[in-house]
Every structure is written in structure tokens, then in C-alpha cells.
């Protein structure tokens, strides 16, 4: 199978590509350099919006597209984020329909629902995407998810899969939840202990691979662990935690963000404040793989030695 992958130079993209390249021919598209890729993986240094990318579709018979190339860095200007994420995705979707690609997989995020005080305890795939209400900077990620959803309805002949994973953690990824667990001393919100879910990067890769199977389509919430209290994670980690009142934490984090002293935007505090439990019933029924790592395995790389 010829698979075109965006975002191949990211830490997670690289691992997905290496794993899939055992069975498939991978054509990677990413403007960033990536020295560590195996030789058998093609890597083209282009922005998805650029013309040479269309040539890749023209010259190869692409069977599937995996779209990992959304930018999550909220330091980038809103204009750039819009261009890279929303416009990039629109161009990619055009190619997919024009060149009869049979499969499209988008790695979206469970964050698009947004942790809200008014959420029902379990969030199903039909739940409205409310993330922008409390965290406007996330809007391009929601827009990408919506664009692919629309595409899914417009092109019933193309198998479109949108994966909305819970917090992805792993030794190789550098996203907010993993970085949070990496802290030596973990600040937490005083008086809040929400129910959360984690998903190991390796399990997500297996799920991505499985979603390439023919017949799988639709929007799927995916998670690794059972829903569990955040305090349980701290307990297993064995790290000291410092309770900080919400208002103080928000103020301090906002200031630190402003002076570039932290990688966490203040609205992300909602993730350690409110429950946001994804209902993964549909994914369990649809996907042929189930998570292999349990809480202890997932947290092992983050524990103090």
C-alpha cells in the first residue's frame, strides 16, 4: 500500500512512519528536516499547500493518506496556524478526492470537545466541539476536525477516519500531557481531582495502523486506560505534587506564558480541573486492536528512578 503521511518529521510522526514502513511504502511530506528516518521512507520537504505535493499524488497511486501534520504550537501567529492547519487540510482534502485515494485518516484530538464544567460525564462522538469557548487558540484544530467531518459526509466512497484520542503520553512525544508528567515536582489544582484517561503513544500507533484496514470509517474516540482520577496517576508516579489555588495558578501561568517561561497555555489548566472522559464504546467495537499498556506501563518512563 502506498501511504502519504503528513507531519512525518514530528517525534510522533517519525515513529508512526517507521512502524508502518515495515508493511507499506511511506511517502512523507513535512517542511521540517528529519535526519533519523529509515532509508526506505521517502521524505519530501514541502508544505502541504505547495504544488509539488500534488505531483506526489499524480505520480504515485496513493492508497491512503494519514494526516498528522496539524500544528499544535500556540506560540505561532494565528495567521500562520490558520494557513498551516486549515488551508493545508483543505488542499490535502482536494487532492484526496481528485486522485481517488480510498482512505483518509486524520489524527484529531479529544481536546476538540474541550473540558467544560457543563459537560456530561462521558463524551460521545456526537458531542458538540466546544473547546474554543474557553480556549480560543485551539480553533484551527477544531476547524480541521470539522473540515474532515464535512469531507466524510460529502464523499461516502472514501473511507474517512477521524481519531480523537485522549491524552497521548509516551517517552518520545513532547505534548502538554507528557511534559506535565515529566515535571520533577508536579503542580496541581487545589481541590480538583478530575477523572482523566491516558493513551500510550505505542497503542495509538497500533490504532492508526488498524484504522487503515478496509471497512473502517467514521469518527472514533480512543483511549488507553480506564477513566481514573488524576490523583491516582500522581500516586503511581510517586512524585511530589504541589496544590495551587486555581486563580493563582491561572494568573501565574498566564504571566509565565507571556514571558515565554512555560510551554503550557493557561486555558489548558481546564484539563486538570474538569472531567473530560471520552466514551470509547464505538472504537472498541470498530477497531480490531485494544490498548496493550496499562497505567503502570504507561507511566513507567515518567517515574522517578
Amino acid at each position: 500500500m502506498n501511504i502519504l503521511m503528513t507531519g512525518i518529521s514530528g517525534r510522533f510522526g517519525r515513529r508512526v512512519a517507521s512502524r508502518l514502513s515495515r508493511k507499506h511504502h511511506i511517502i512523507g511530506v513535512d517542511p521540517r528536516k528529519c535526519p533519523a528516518l529509515p532509508k526506505r521512507i521517502e521524505h519530501h520537504h514541502h508544505d502541504i499547500r505547495h504544488r509539488p505535493v500534488e505531483n506526489l499524488f499524480r505520480r504515485n497511486k496513493i492508497d491512503a493518506v494519514i494526516h498528522l501534520g496539524t500544528v499544535h504550537n500556540f506560540r505561532i501567529s494565528p495567521k500562520k496556524l490558520y494557513e498551516r492547519n486549515v488551508m493545508g487540510t483543505e488542499v490535502l482534502l482536494k487532492h484526496v478526492s481528485k486522485y481517488n485515494v480510498g482512505k483518509l485518516v486524520l489524527l484529531s484530538s479529544g481536546d476538540v470537545y474541550g473540558p467544560m464544567p457543563t459537560n456530561s460525564h462521558y463524551i460521545t462522538e456526537e458531542a458538540p466541539l466546544m473547546a474554543t469557548q474557553r480556549f480560543p487558540e485551539i480553533r484551527t484544530m477544531v476547524a480541521v476536525d470539522r473540515a474532515v467531518q464535512t469531507f466524510f459526509w460529502k464523499h461516502p466512497d472514501i473511507e474517512t477516519v477521524i481519531l480523537r484520542p485522549a491524552h497521548i503520553v509516551g517517552p518520545h512525544v513532547r505534548n502538554a500531557p507528557s511534559n506535565y508528567l515529566r515535571l520533577k515536582m508536579i503542580p496541581r489544582l487545589m481541590g480538583f481531582d478530575p477523572i482523566v484517561q491516558l493513551l500510550a503513544e505505542s497503542d495509538l500507533i497500533a490504532m492508526l495502523e488498524d484504522s487503515l484496514r478496509s471497512g473502517i470509517r467514521g469518527i472514533l474516540n480512543v483511549a488507553g486506560t480506564e477513566p481514573l482520577p488524576l490523583s491516582r496517576i500522581f500516586h503511581v508516579l510517586g512524585k511530589p505534587t504541589l496544590p495551587v489555588p486555581y486563580s493563582l495558578f491561572k494568573l501565574a501561568l498566564g504571566k509565565m506564558w507571556q514571558y515565554r517561561m512555560t510551554a503550557f497555555p493557561a486555558p489548558e489548566l481546564d484539563h486538570i480541573r474538569f472531567h473530560a472522559v471520552l466514551d470509547t464504546t464505538l472504537a472498541k467495537k470498530t477497531l480490531g486492536v485494544s490498548p496493550e499498556l496499562d497505567l503502570y506501563d504507561i507511566l513507567a518512563p515518567f517515574r522517578l528512578h
Binding site: 464544567p117 457543563t118 459537560n119 460525564h121 481541590g191 480538583f192 472531567h275
Partner: peptide
């Protein structure tokens, strides 16, 4: 009630004691 999840301590205590937000779905 809907304002409860935003209250520190109270929200956690009530959740652990089996009380949850009053939505029809829940």
C-alpha cells in the same frame, strides 16, 4: 447543579461520593 463542577473541594468530594452533574445524558 451546573455551577458545582467549578467549585474546588466541593466538586471533588461530591464526585467521589457518587453525585454527578445533572445532565439527561448522565
Amino acid at each position: 447543579e451546573r455551577f458545582v463542577p467549578s467549585l474546588p473541594f466541593v466538586s471533588t468530594f461530591l464526585t467521589r461520593c457518587g453525585q454527578i452533574l445533572g445532565t439527561p445524558e448522565n
